[in-house]
Nucleic acid binder design. Structure first.
Lengths: 145, 145
DNA sequence: CACTAAATAAGAATAATTCTTATAAAAGAA
DNA sequence: TTCTTTTATAAGAATTATTCTTATTTAGTG
C-alpha cells in the first residue's frame, strides 16, 4: 500500500507518489512534505510556514495552505480536528487516534486497533454507512499533570 | 444531575440553572437556549442567529457567539468539532458521539456506552490522564447513499 | 424605584483561510 | 536541449469566522 510505503521511506517515494497522482513535483511540495514528515508535533499551516521560510525564504503562506489541501485531498496527509480554530496536520500513517491535552493543547497519536475492529452499535446501521472512526480523547498530558 | 434535568424539561429549568451558575436570565439567553434545544440539527452560531432574528430582530451575531461560549464553558451545551471551519453546537445531554455524513455534512448523534466504559490501551497510561472520549465516525448517511 | 454590575448591540478588529492575477517553472514534445 | 503547454507559485486582496471595544441597556437586589 501507498501508506505503508510512506512509513518506511517517506521522502524518497514522495516524488513517485506525486507523479502517480498527476501532481507536479515542486521544491515547495517536497519541502512542505518533508517538513511535515519530520514533525513530531502536529503543526498548523502557519507553524509549518514559519519553519519553512528559513529554507525557502519566498514561500508564501498561501502555498502552504494550498499544498496541505492538495495533499489532504489525496490522502497523503490528514487534518486533525480539535476544538481550536486552527487546523492541525500530520503525514498519513497507520490508522490512529488522538489524545489532546486540555492544558497545553499538545496532540499525541495512539493506536487502538481493537476500537478500529469493533462494529458500531447496531442501531447506527439504519442511519447510513459509517466506517471511518476518529477518536479524540481529552485530558491532561504527563507534563501538565 | 443537572444534565439529566435538562433532558426531561430543558426549558423550564433553564432559568434556575442560570441562577445557580450566577448568570443573569436575559431574553437573549433564554431564546438562544430554547432555539438550540429545539434544534434537531447541530446549528452553527450563524444559523442560530438567522433563526432567532425573526423573534428577536435586534439580536446581534456577537451575542449568539458570546452566549454560546458562556453556555459551553458551563457545560450546558457542547461544541461539536468537524473538519469544517464553522463550529457546530448542541445542548448537552447523555454522553454521545457523532456520525458525520461526508456528502451532506449532516451530524447525527449516537450513544455507545460500551465505548465509554472501555479503558484506553495500556500504553496511553504513561502519556497522561485522558478520559473524555469523543468519537466521530465519517461515512455517508442514509439519504445520501 | 434606584443602584450596580453584567449583558447587549453595533460595528470595528482580528485571525484563519481562500481567492485573484500576473509570473514562474515542471513535464512533455520536438 | 529548447519550446510549449499547463500547472503551481507569490503577493496581496478578499472573505469568513470569530472576538473585541465601547456606549447603552437591563437584570437582579436592596
Amino acid at each position: 500500500m501507498v501508506i505503508e510505503k510512506m512509513q518506511t521511506d517517506k521522502i524518497s517515494t514522495f516524488q513517485q507518489l506525486c507523479r502517480e497522482k498527476g501532481l507536479r513535483v515542486t521544491p515547495q511540495r517536497i519541502e512542505i512534505f518533508r517538513a511535515l514528515a519530520a514533525s513530531d508535533d502536529h503543526p498548523t499551516a502557519e507553524k509549518l510556514h514559519q519553519r519553512l521560510v528559513e529554507s525557502l525564504p519566498t514561500l508564501s503562506l498561501d502555498t502552504v495552505y494550498r499544498t496541505l489541501g492538495t495533499f489532504s485531498a489525496l490522502g497523503l496527509i490528514n487534518k486533525v480536528e480539535t476544538i481550536e480554530s486552527q487546523a492541525h496536520f500530520e503525514v498519513s500513517h497507520a490508522h490512529h487516534h488522538h489524545l489532546i491535552c486540555e492544558r497545553c493543547k499538545k496532540i499525541i497519536d495512539f493506536e487502538w486497533p481493537q476500537l478500529d475492529d469493533t462494529d458500531l452499535p447496531h442501531e447506527t446501521q439504519s442511519l447510513g454507512r459509517f466506517d471511518k472512526k476518529s477518536l479524540i480523547v481529552y485530558g491532561i498530558c504527563r507534563h501538565c499533570l
